[in-house]
Computed example of a mutant assay.
Amino acid sequence: METKDITGKKVHHGHNVKRLRQSRGIKQQAIAHELELSQQVISKYEQMEELDEEILQKFAKALDISVDVIKMLEEDPVAVYIENNTFESVNDNAKINVASDDSSTNTFNELDKVIELYERLLKTEQERNTALEDRLSKLEEKLNGKK
């Protein structure tokens, strides 16, 4: 089973299952119950780069999506960074819906959230750069003062 596409972007089935599950606000325990597995087994599957076709089909059915979505969703380092810094802070009562074939409605605009998170990340990086520039200029002043 190939895990890279032509562009060289990496596809990680387990991470894709986790991302799709989290985006729907579904806990590992709920998927485990539906698939008649333990939560620990779900966690292990979500860490695996490649999942066999049977497992992919079970997850796709439980998440009400196509197997191809799990197989083709690419890992994006920025998305992984954003996910790792946002999903832990989502409270248990929050509902995050992803557009699907049914008529469910989004509770927020995903693109706006991505832009907001990107701007926060950019602002943090700019603040770090400013602080480093200040430290560098102070160091240069000290060095020039000693000459």
Score class of each variant (00 low, 15 high):
residue 114 V to Y: 12
residue 122 L to N: 08
residue 38 S to I: 02
residue 91 N to Q: 00
residue 105 T to M: 15
residue 113 K to R: 05
residue 112 D to G: 07
residue 32 A to L: 03
residue 118 Y to C: 07
residue 19 R to W: 06
residue 123 K to D: 05
residue 57 Q to C: 10
residue 35 L to H: 01
residue 53 E to K: 10
residue 126 Q to V: 02
residue 113 K to I: 12
residue 76 D to T: 05
residue 107 T to I: 11
residue 26 I to P: 10
residue 37 L to D: 03
residue 9 K to G: 02
residue 92 D to E: 14
residue 44 K to D: 00
residue 2 E to S: 02
residue 59 F to P: 02
residue 27 K to D: 02
residue 53 E to T: 09
residue 102 D to P: 11
residue 105 T to R: 15
residue 133 E to P: 01
residue 72 M to C: 00
residue 53 E to W: 11
residue 97 N to K: 07
residue 49 E to I: 07
residue 57 Q to G: 13
residue 54 E to T: 05
residue 145 G to Q: 05
residue 44 K to Y: 03
residue 106 N to T: 10
residue 20 L to V: 11
residue 12 H to R: 14
residue 32 A to I: 04
residue 106 N to H: 09
residue 58 K to Q: 15
residue 88 E to C: 06
residue 147 K to F: 11
residue 97 N to L: 09
residue 108 F to I: 02
residue 10 K to W: 05
residue 6 I to L: 10
residue 137 S to W: 09
residue 140 E to M: 02
residue 115 I to E: 01
residue 54 E to A: 05
residue 116 E to N: 13
residue 9 K to T: 08
residue 57 Q to H: 08
residue 28 Q to E: 11
residue 133 E to W: 14
residue 100 S to I: 02
residue 69 V to T: 14
residue 146 K to Y: 10
residue 75 E to Y: 06
residue 10 K to L: 09
residue 85 N to S: 04
residue 127 E to Q: 03
residue 28 Q to F: 02
residue 135 R to K: 15
residue 74 E to H: 02
residue 121 L to D: 07
residue 72 M to H: 00
residue 58 K to T: 03
residue 44 K to L: 04
residue 126 Q to M: 12
residue 70 I to M: 03
residue 84 N to F: 07
residue 130 T to D: 13
residue 119 E to P: 00
residue 63 L to R: 14
residue 111 L to C: 01
residue 48 M to Y: 05
residue 6 I to N: 09
residue 16 N to Q: 12
residue 2 E to M: 06
residue 78 V to H: 03
residue 6 I to T: 12
residue 16 N to R: 13
residue 95 K to H: 11
residue 138 K to N: 12
residue 11 V to S: 04
residue 2 E to F: 08
residue 18 K to C: 12
residue 52 D to V: 07
residue 6 I to V: 13
residue 108 F to R: 12
residue 30 A to S: 10
residue 39 Q to K: 14
residue 40 Q to C: 04
residue 101 D to V: 07
residue 70 I to R: 10
residue 42 I to W: 00
residue 57 Q to V: 04
residue 104 S to G: 10
residue 44 K to P: 00
residue 126 Q to K: 13
residue 143 L to T: 05
residue 141 E to C: 01
residue 41 V to A: 04
residue 26 I to A: 08
residue 145 G to T: 05
residue 59 F to R: 08
residue 110 E to Y: 01
residue 107 T to W: 10
residue 115 I to R: 03
residue 118 Y to H: 03
residue 11 V to L: 11
residue 80 V to H: 09
residue 132 L to V: 13
residue 37 L to H: 06
